[in-house]
Every structure is written in C-alpha cells, then in structure tokens.
Write a protein that binds this DNA or RNA. Structure first.
Length: 697
DNA sequence: ATAGGGTTAG
C-alpha cells in the first residue's frame, strides 16, 4: 500500500477516536509508569497525522498535544505544534498549558511571546497558564507586565484570571499585592478565598490567614475541604491546638473528616503540636494511607523525639513495598539523627546508598548531620568526601558537625579549604563556624570570624549574635557580652538572652543574669528552661530565697521542670531511662551498680555540688535525685551489660547537669571506659577523668 | 479546556 492510499484510508473520525484512545491509554500507562509502548503508539499517530495532512485540523492536533501531555512529553507536542501553519488560540493555549503543567515555565512564557508576535490575542485561559508559570519561576517583573496585560485584554474582572493573580503574587512573597487584587474582586469564589488564605500561610503569616478566614465565614461562600486544609495548616503553624480542635469539629460537622488530604493536614497538626498518639489514631483509621500521610506521621514522630516509632513506620513502608519519596527519606534521617543511634545510622546509610537518593545533595547533607549527631564524625566525613559536587550547605553541615564535637580547629581548616575550592560562605556556614568556636573555647578566632561576615556581605542573624554572646560569656567576659548585646542593630531575641544567662550561670553573675532572665520571661514566658537556668544561677550563689521564688513563679504558671531522659544503645537496641526509673527489667542490678559506683566515687573524693539542683528538698533527697539522673542510670546499665572496655554511647534530651558531668568524668577513669554523651547542645567525650568540652557547655 | 491545598526544609 502506498503512502498516498494509506492516508486516504484514514477517516477523520477514526483518527479522532484513535487519538482519544491514545490520550486515555497513555494516561493509564503513566499511572503504571510504563510509557514505552504508548510512545510507540504516539509515533505511529504522528506519522499518520503528518502523512494524512490532517495536522491542519486544529482539534486533532489539540487531541494529539493532550496525548503528549499525558505522557509528560511537551517536546513531542511542540514538534506537532510547529507543523501547524496558523495555530488558533485553542492550540496556543494547549501548548502553553503543556509547558506549565510540565513545570517548564520559561517555555510557557516564551510561547506566550511567540503567540503575541504571531498576532493572536490571549484569552482568559492563556493567562491562567502564563500567570502560573510566572509564579512558578518567580519572575516578578514579567508577572507585573502580565498583570497589566490582563487589563488590556479586558480581563480585569474575570474571576479565574484574578484568582491566578492572587496566587502568583503570593508565590512571589508579595502578600500585600495579592491582597490588593483580592480586595478588588467582588464576585469572589471559594477559590479566591483559598488563594489569599493559603498565600498568607505560605508566607509565614497564619494570623492574617485566619483573619481572612473569619471574613470568609461571614460571606455566603460555602466552605470546602481545600480551604480547610489551609486553615488547619495556619493553626498548625501557630501551634494553637485549642483553635485547631475547633476546626477539627467544623470539619466533622461538614462531613469532610474522611477526605484523605484533610486527614493528612489534621494528622500533621496533632503531630506538630506534640499529640503523636492522636495523629497515630488518624493514621490508623485510613485503610490505605497515601504517601503524604505516611510522611506526615513519620516526620511527626521524628520531630517529637519518637525516633524509633518513626523508623518502625519507615521500615514498614519498605517491607510493604510502598514507594517512598525524598521527603520520607529525609524524615527518616531526621528520626535517626534525633534518636542518636549509631546502629540505625549505619543501616539507613546503607539503605540510601542503594537507593535513587544516593547522590541527592539534600539527602547527603542530612546524612552528614545524622552521622555527626549519632557520634560518628568519621562517617560524616566519609559522606562528605564522597560527594563530588559540594555546595555551601554541604560544607556547612560538615563544619557544623565538627562544631558539635568541639573540633573547632578542624572546622576552621575545612572553612579555609572551602574558600580555596571557590565556594562562598553563607550565613549557615558562619553559624557552624561560630558554634564550633564556642564549643571549643576559641574566643579570639570566633570573634574574628564574626567580623569577617560583613566582608562576605553577610548580615548577622540572631544565631550569630547568640554564638558571640555565648563565646564571650563562657570566657567570663560578661560585661563585654552585655555591651555587645546593647550594640546589636537588631532587637535581641530569646537565643541571645539565653546565651547571656547561661554565661552568667557559669560565672555566678547574678545581676546580669537577672536582666537576661527578665527579658526571657517577657519574650518566652512558658519555656521551663529559662526558669531552671535562673534558679540554678541563684543556687550557685546560695540565694536560696530566690530559688524558692523562681519555683513559686513556675508553679503559678503551671510549669513543671522538663523531665530528663537518656537512652543508651546496647546491641542495636535503644533503652531509655527517666529520672529514678525503676521500670527496667534489670532495674535491681542497675541500682546495685549505681550504689557501687557511688561508693567508689566517694572513696575517690567526689563531692556533689548541691548548689545546682532545684530545691526545697532535704539533703538526702538531693543526693538521691542526683544519683538517679537518667544519664547515670544509662551509664550503670551500660557498665553491667557490655564487656569491660566497651565504649558507652548515651543520648540525653536536656543539657548535661553539672553533677552528673563531674561524676561521669570520674567514672570514666574508675571503670576505664570511654563514655560519649550527646546532650541537647553538644557531644561530651569522657575519658581518663576528663571531658572533651573542657567543662564549659 | 478554565483556578485553590497538604508532607521536608540541609
């Protein structure tokens, strides 16, 4: 059969049906993520289109373009598009949509310009895709031009176009421009309200988002689940569980509580607000949780210190062959980093090295952080060295890792190597460097590095200022630290005053400490840590009345001292201990060992500093509380359950207490073991009676 | 043919 007769044999309608079928089958195929056979089908159709001359029929080409788009192959669509001599507006819209939907935003904008050159006027559909492309690639100038073009083409009051403008400005981070567009819209739909509400949420302004939501409820527009997702997110960001629960009841009242994506946002809300068990209830009630729900649950566990639960879910996903994405992987890494388990870190590293994320920069940066936090600076360095393309954040993560371990000089050396390799530092790099200096007592170096920031065009943030205050404070230069705070160009925040207070505690500077505490109570009234620090400061100066007053303030505010817990990893199992914990099956032996250690400590001349404990306790109770601290229980358990000489690795949720710190120093010598403790701030390496932190933390 | 949302965040 000749080509000519072949083309004649095709009827218009049969080709049309074939293309519809191609679009439908290719969509299915995409779901099955096997598109090779469909590609072949498309090739055949393409030949047919060209050969038959039917590519001149606009609607057939549109169908073809749609088939291509289902295959996410915009290049193929473009190839056909170019065959058409005078594309009409429908075809132009089709191809622009194709680029936008495939996230090739520059292509969409280029096609828009080509379209104008060719003399075809855009319509409302055109703008939807072009505005989305502008938002997607954050081209504010072009976006603004497009905005004026909408007026030129008489679309100033088209709801669809105006809604897209609201979203576009929100994506630029210009919520006030978005708001102006929104305010001028009088025929607002639920989509208009959702666009402005989510715009505020995405730009970190949940308060305004909720204000708008209040207005919305006074309007006649009906709520749907999509707008409620944004509202739940707003309450999640504000950590306002009370109001969040109210929205939860509203969701139930509207019968939307089984909407899968509402479930995701509610799970996330309860998890972020610390109510992991409620989150887990949501998770469990779904027969087949979607990927986002798995991710919300895993990250919720990870962030609240439930590392093992997070990893358990992650393992379940793998064994059930549920596909994970990079968010899942990063949440799992976070979970292991929080748990501090060396064994889990090794396992996860192995898993990732065999996965498609093995070269992902984000994942590898998180891995460096994880290995460092699990106490394995060598593994962190291994990941770092393996990466060929190192960006600033990768370098910074490694620098931070050294800082965490108190290897200040290594951090600085690495920084110099980074500059040599042509990578410019950013503010994260300096957080790492300054942290490294403060954890190693490198006062002079830290001070100089802080002043180098401006040479690199980096404006210091709160974290940098607080590192400097910490650096000066622990070295005893408290008045200088205070003057430094007073000279700050930005308003000193919680971290800065917190750093001053801890410096004051180390050097028993009551007056300045009170000034810092006063600020902290104003800025962060419900954070227990500040009250404990102030109380410890008073205790160190023997001001027992004041200690009592702080205690009273805490009771009045309904605050309890955060409970300490420590975990130790034995044969790959994490065992967690709380203060005075007697729930462990080997509890009896643990307490016998604690007694034995206590006697040996006393014999070696160890005396507890009673000052640093919160009290209205009598002497005996103090001693009792001291030796019951969770880290001591973990040490005792470690000693009785491992071979002599084995290194003990312990993770504690709070900062190390002074007494346990000096006790563990001595224990490391008495039992001749290396003991590694990761507290809330850093690593302590105890060996032969000394600690790597040099007793400053 | 039309628009809006959610998980991470080194």
């Amino acid at each position: 059969m000749s080509l000519h007769s072949f083309s004649l044999s095709l009827s218009l309608s049969s080709l049309s049906t074939a293309l519809s079928k191609a679009a439908a089958t290719s969509q299915e195929a995409l779901l099955r993520s096997c598109n090779s056979s469909c590609r072949k089908h498309l090739d055949q159709l393409y030949v047919q289109l060209i050969v038959s001359g039917l590519y001149k029929c606009g609607f057939l080409v549109i169908k073809f373009v749609n088939a291509c788009l289902h295959l996410r192959d915009v290049n193929y669509a473009h190839k056909v598009f170019r065959e058409v001599l005078e594309p009409d507006i429908l075809l132009w819209n089709g191809i622009i949509k194709g680029y936008t939907q495939n996230n090739i935003f520059a292509g969409a904008i280029r096609m828009y310009k080509d379209m104008q050159v060719s003399g075809v006027n855009p319509d409302c559909f055109t703008f939807l895709y072009v505005l989305k492309a502008c938002g997607g690639m954050s081209v504010e100038g072009i976006g603004k031009q497009m905005h004026s073009q909408t007026f030129k083409y008489g679309l100033g009051s088209n709801v669809f176009v105006q809604n897209s403008l609201v979203s576009m400005y929100a994506r630029f981070g210009q919520t006030s421009s978005a708001r102006l567009v929104f305010d001028k819209l009088h025929n607002r739909t639920v989509v208009s309200w959702t666009s402005i509400i989510s715009g505020y949420v995405q730009n970190g302004d949940p308060v305004d988002a909720l204000r708008v939501f209040k207005d919305m409820r006074r309007s006649t527009v009906k709520l749907d689940w999509i707008v409620l997702v944004s509202v739940v997110t707003a309450y999640t960001d504000m950590e306002d569980l009370g109001q969040g629960k109210a929205i939860h009841s509203l969701v139930t009242k509207l019968g939307l509580e089984f909407e899968p994506d509402i479930v995701v946002s509610l799970t996330n809300m309860y998890a972020k607000c610390g109510r992991v068990e409620v989150a887990r209830f949501f998770f469990n009630q779904m027969e087949k949780p979607n990927l986002l729900l798995w991710n919300a649950m895993i990250s919720g566990y990870a962030k609240n210190g439930y590392g093992e639960e997070a990893i358990e879910l992650f393992r379940k996903m793998i064994s059930k062959n549920i596909g994970v994405d990079s968010v899942t992987v990063r949440s799992a890494i976070l979970a292991v980093a929080q748990a501090g388990s060396l064994e889990l870190a090794r396992w996860l590293d192995g898993y990732i090295s065999k996965s498609e994320y093995r070269d992902d920069v984000f994942v590898n940066t998180a891995l460096i952080d994880m290995h460092a936090k699990c106490g394995s600076i060598c593994f962190a360095r291994g990941v770092f060295d393996r990466m060929v393309d190192k960006d600033v954040v990768l370098w910074s993560a490694m620098i931070m890792g050294y800082g965490l371990h108190g290897h200040g000089q290594e951090a600085i050396d690495l920084y110099n190597r980074m500059k040599q390799s042509g990578v410019c530092p950013n503010n994260v790099t300096f957080v790492g460097l300054l942290t490294a200096c403060k954890n190693s007592g490198l006062v002079k170096e830290g001070w100089e590095l802080f002043h180098q920031m401006r040479d690199h065009g980096i404006e210091p943030h709160h974290q940098h200022y607080s590192c400097v205050v910490d650096l000066l404070g622990r070295a005893g230069y408290l008045n200088r630290a205070y003057d430094f705070i007073m000279s700050m160009p930005i308003k000193p925040g919680v971290s800065v005053w917190g750093a001053l207070l801890s410096g004051c505690k180390i050097h028993r500077q009551v007056r300045l400490g009170e000034i810092a505490a006063e600020q902290l109570f104003l800025l962060d009234p419900y954070n227990t840590g500040h009250y404990v620090q102030l109380s410890n400061l008073y205790a160190s100066a023997h001001l027992w009345n004041h200690v009592g007053n702080v205690r009273l303030m805490m009771t009045q505010k309904g605050l309890n001292k955060d409970l300490g817990h420590s975990s130790i990893e034995i044969n790959g199992n994490l065992e967690t201990f709380h203060v005075g914990d007697r729930s462990h099956p080997r509890s009896k032996e643990i307490f016998e060992e604690l007694d034995r250690l206590e006697r040996r400590l006393k014999a070696a001349g160890y005396v507890a500093h009673m000052e640093s404990v919160l009290h209205d306790l009598n002497h005996e109770e103090i001693e009792e509380t001291l030796c019951n601290h969770s880290e001591r229980l973990a040490v005792a358990y470690g000693i009785i359950s491992t071979a002599p000489g084995t290194t003990l690795r312990i993770t504690k949720n709070l900062r190390a207490c002074v007494n346990c710190h000096s006790a563990i120093k001595l224990i490391s010598k008495l039992v001749d073991r290396e003991i590694i403790v990761r507290d809330a701030k850093r690593f302590h390496y105890f060996k032969d009676g000394v600690c790597s932190c040099g007793d400053f933390w």
